[in-house]
């Protein structure tokens, strides 16, 4: 491990610790017993295979979406539109799977995921194009696109595809459902954990290789660091931005895989439960590193799932507070740690 990754690791760990301390104090102020609450969260998650399985299940879509965002963030594209992008992709994935149910299993999965990927990707290309042609910040366009996409999905779903008086599509045939982990490892008895989780791990690894170990990854990060210099270095920066936005947005569609093929068998409006936004925090905490994303997704999943158990004791919004504080303390701690190691105030 080189110096820089070490410094990153230190600052990320410190910020998690700082966050826990702040929450600890906050709970004391609220006159709650922090020990009780933390121990409840942990026992909920780690008491049995079911808890662990559910936590990994919750981490799965976070890993997918964050990996997509990591590609964007490395290229200095601040994509806030994952929530919309992933819904469009997941919706189309489910529709294609329903229509092409005559295909054999592996082909059906592949084709429907690719279609979802392309749709999400296209919704990434739109803000990319506006950014390049009109110099409009993607932060604004992607936020606005969220509303547009969600409204569109809602409209098509309700008017054409939904099962009566629900917000979901038909169910795909049970033959097309993924293997549940509990069928292989009885330890996870009862949990929804499925092989999507393993695919998420695989994707994180592949994205790590893609970003750090390929020529395109080099160019992508170089554009993120300094777009002007990249152009003078002969990199076609606009192409890099378009491709990164397409790939990044496309990957977010995979969040649907866990839900559709691994869990329910259909697309349901609202299934994403703001993963698209939580993933921003997850990705930032991981410093855009896909391997780090695995760990920060797990952390957020622990808070999410374990948080359920303390619903009676503290408001569930506390978990949102935790997310916010993690990001803030990361920013603060990062600056301090870097200054400490470099001895520089500006660089």
């Amino acid at each position: 491990m080189n110096r820089k990754s070490l410094i990153n690791l230190i600052s990320v760990s410190l910020s998690v610790i700082v966050t826990l301390l702040i929450i600890f104090i906050l709970l004391l102020i609220l006159n709650k017993d922090p020990f009780l609450i933390f121990s409840k969260i942990f026992s909920e998650v780690f008491a049995d295979g079911y808890g662990i399985g559910q936590t990994l299940f919750k981490a799965t879509p976070l890993i997918f979406v964050s990996c997509g965002l990591a590609v964007c963030f490395h290229a200095s594209i601040f994509n806030i539109g994952a929530e919309g992008q992933l819904n469009a992709g997941a919706f189309v994935t489910a529709l294609v799977a329903l229509k092409l149910d005559f295909l054999p299993f592996p082909l059906l999965i592949t084709v429907s995921l690719i279609c979802g990927f392309i749709i999400s990707g296209i919704f990434g290309l739109i803000p990319a194009y506006i950014k390049i042609k009109k110099d409009v910040s993607e932060v604004i366009t992607t936020i606005m696109m969220n509303f547009i996409i969600l409204a569109l999905v809602n409209f098509f779903l309700l008017d054409f595809f939904a099962v009566k008086s629900t917000m979901r599509t038909e169910k795909i045939s049970a033959n097309f459902m993924f293997l549940k982990m509990e069928d292989v490892i009885p330890f996870f008895q009862g949990s929804s954990l499925n092989i999507s989780f393993l695919l998420a791990l695989l994707l994180a690894f592949l994205m790590y290789m893609f970003i750090y170990k390929t020529g395109f990854g080099y160019k992508l990060r170089s554009v993120g660091f300094n777009e002007i210099a990249s152009r003078y270095l002969g990199i076609r920066t606009n192409a890099v931005i378009m491709i990164s936005f397409f790939i990044g947005a496309g990957i977010t569609s995979l969040a649907g895989m866990n839900y559709i093929f691994g869990y329910k068998g259909f697309y349901e409006f609202g299934f994403s439960n703001n993963i698209g936004f939580t993933a921003i925090a997850v990705t930032l905490l991981a410093r855009n590193n896909p391997i780090g994303i695995i760990f920060s997704s797990l952390l957020f999943a622990v808070l999410d799932y374990g948080g359920l158990s303390v619903n009676q004791l503290v408001p569930k919004e506390l978990m949102l507070v935790v997310q916010g504080i993690i990001i803030l303390s990361l920013l603060a701690v990062d600056k301090l740690v870097n200054n400490y190691f470099r001895g520089k105030i500006v660089s």
Partner: peptide, 18 residues
């Protein structure tokens, strides 16, 4: 500084980037 190199990359990376 603005056009010549990526300051986060080391010498060899800046050379091969071109």
């Amino acid at each position: 500084k603005r056009k010549g190199f990526i300051k986060e990359y080391n010498i060899g990376e800046n050379i091969s980037l071109k």
